[in-house]
């Protein structure tokens, strides 16, 4: 599956991705109803003020993931086909080892499906909710990311006054 990449420099800290993530992981799928759900739907993307700039952080779907290694029940496992770190709530005993293990702080305890909340790259959606929600296109899919980077690079080159 295409990874979600972040164009850090574009984030304005609007947190739209966080809200969209929660709504996408709510029972109703609609903002106005989601805010009434109890327990509240959790987010799996985090906008943090890191080093003076706001930036969204989300699970990097590590290949050799500390959370997977910390899991005593293989509730977390690297899925070869999707390339994601997949979470299987039925196997989870809620020991929170992954929460402590993730060096990026991308797993939080949760109480809805299973015992943790972790980016599942929006199961069943073509484009993840956060990518769709991002007004500045900070969050983009891998192909778009590279495409946009190339275009930016070329534009910068042209604007530098030294066209090829």
């Amino acid at each position: 599956m295409e990874r979600i990449l972040v164009r850090w420099e574009r984030c304005v800290g609007c947190r739209s991705c966080e809200l969209a993530c929660r709504v996408a992981h709510s029972a109703s799928g609609d903002l106005f109803s989601a805010v009434l759900e109890r327990p509240a739907p959790s987010r799996r993307i985090y906008v943090e003020q890191a080093d003076k700039t706001p930036s969204p952080f989300l699970c990097r779907q590590c290949e050799d993931a500390p959370c997977v290694r910390s899991c005593p029940t293989r509730a977390l496992a690297h899925d070869e086909t999707t390339g994601l770190v997949a979470y299987e709530p039925a196997r989870c005993i809620g020991c929170h080892g992954c929460v402590m293990a993730c060096p990026f702080g991308m797993i939080q305890p949760d109480v809805r499906e299973g015992f943790i909340a972790k980016c599942d790259r929006c199961k069943g959606r073509d484009r993840p909710a956060c990518v769709e929600a991002c007004p500045t296109h900070t969050l983009v899919l891998e192909k778009d990311f590279l495409d946009l980077r190339r275009k930016e690079a070329v534009r910068n080159l042209v604007q530098s006054g030294n066209p090829v």
Binding site: E9, Y46, E48, A50, F57, C102, G105, Q108
Partner: peptide, 19 residues
Amino acid sequence: DAGGAVGRRRRAQPAAFPV
């Protein structure tokens, strides 16, 4: 305070790599 600790970890990440 797992939430707080996890949040601190997130914030400790270097935000923007220079572009």
